[in-house]
């Protein structure tokens, strides 16, 4: 009895392990954010385009919004820019930019040349706000609900397809719960 059961149990255990571990659709570099369900870290940074203004996410309380972390040195950010522009023109939620460890002039130029999908861009030159958000690469896109809680983090270039599949349903739920 044991001679049969033991190898079989081992086989099942390994099969389960591999089903999780070797799943090709799982990105092994994507880390779950410990921020999900918690209050979005507050920031108050100078605005990229108008340094005399302060962008604070406290001003967005009660609103569902998206925070997109980008930089001009980040190649995949260039790749997702078209999609962000298109999404911003659909006017679903405000998209706030967090310009991460960048140079102000370069970042301004980037937006002038490629178009600006952001309602506001906070300029995080020394990366302190990014540390609070647990940013470890760019682009990263966060979704914050009406209670100011982070409800989703997407690591990778944004696409219309990802937006429709991952963001729109969550925005709808967040709005229903917030109303």
């Amino acid at each position: 009895m044991w001679k049969f059961l033991l190898p079989f149990a081992a086989f099942v255990a390994l099969a389960v392990l591999f089903a999780f571990g070797l799943n090709p659709s799982r990105d092994i570099h994507a880390l779950p954010s410990p921020l999900i369900g918690k209050a979005a870290p507050a920031f108050a940074l100078t605005d990229l385009l108008d340094p005399s203004r302060v962008d604070s996410n406290g001003d967005l309380k009660g609103q569902v919004y998206v925070l997109n972390v980008w930089a001009t040195w980040c190649v995949p950010c260039r790749q997702e820019h078209e999609a962000l522009l298109a999404i911003s023109q659909q006017h679903v939620v405000p998209i706030i930019g967090l310009n991460w460890k960048d140079q102000r002039e370069r970042a301004k130029q980037w937006l002038e040349q490629l178009g600006n999908p952001y309602q506001a861009v906070a300029f995080d030159a020394d990366g302190r706000a990014a540390i609070n958000w647990g940013v470890y690469g760019a682009p990263e896109t966060y979704l914050v609900d009406t209670h100011g809680r982070v409800i989703f983090k997407f690591i990778s270039p944004m696409t219309q397809e990802v937006w429709d599949r991952e963001f729109l349903p969550r925005i709808a739920i967040a709005r229903r719960e917030g109303a």
Binding site: L31, P34, L35
Partner: peptide, 8 residues
């Protein structure tokens, strides 16, 4: 650190 980046 773990509050921001997780146990990883």
């Amino acid at each position: 650190m773990t509050d921001r980046y997780g146990e990883f």
